[in-house]
Simulated assay, not measured.
Amino acid sequence: MNPIATAQYGLFAASQRFEASAQRTAQMGDRAFEVDYTHEAIEQITAKTEFRANLAVIKTADEMTDSLLDILA
């Protein structure tokens, strides 16, 4: 299993989740849509946290690869 590929998909999913929530939030002024601001705020915070977690996975995988290459060199 490739952790970087998995984290890249996680980044994509988090960005999609954030974008969908942002679009719903933008519709708050339209009376045709019922938007729960609290729910959308939680969605956006969760997406931000997921994005950061996946970035940490990529950073850690990169550091581990560098360490392995240093050992082998």
Rank of each mutant, 00 (worst) to 15 (best):
P3N: 01
P3T: 03
I4V: 15
I4P: 01
A5E: 14
T6W: 07
T6E: 15
Q8R: 12
Y9P: 00
G10V: 03
G10F: 01
L11M: 08
L11V: 03
F12V: 13
A13E: 03
A14N: 04
S15R: 10
S15Y: 07
Q16H: 09
F18L: 04
E19I: 08
E19G: 08
E19R: 11
A20T: 14
S21W: 02
A22P: 05
R24Y: 06
Q27K: 06
M28T: 13
G29Y: 00
G29A: 10
G29M: 11
G29I: 05
D30C: 05
D30P: 12
R31E: 14
R31I: 04
R31Y: 11
R31W: 06
A32M: 13
F33Q: 13
F33S: 13
E34Q: 11
E34K: 10
E34C: 01
V35C: 02
D36T: 06
Y37I: 05
T38M: 09
H39N: 09
H39R: 10
E40V: 02
A41D: 11
I42C: 03
E43W: 00
E43M: 11
E43L: 04
Q44H: 07
Q44T: 13
Q44G: 06
I45S: 09
I45W: 03
T46M: 07
A47T: 00
A47P: 02
K48P: 03
T49R: 10
T49Q: 12
E50L: 06
E50S: 05
E50A: 03
F51K: 01
F51D: 04
R52P: 03
R52G: 00
R52A: 14
N54M: 02
N54F: 03
N54D: 02
A56T: 04
A56I: 00
A56Y: 00
V57S: 01
V57W: 02
K59P: 00
T60H: 04
T60C: 01
T60W: 04
D62E: 13
E63L: 12
E63P: 01
M64T: 09
M64E: 06
M64L: 15
M64P: 00
D66I: 13
D66S: 15
S67Y: 13
D70Y: 10
D70N: 09
D70M: 14
D70P: 10
I71N: 11
I71W: 09
L72Y: 14
L72K: 13
A73Q: 15
A73Y: 15
A73I: 11
A73R: 15
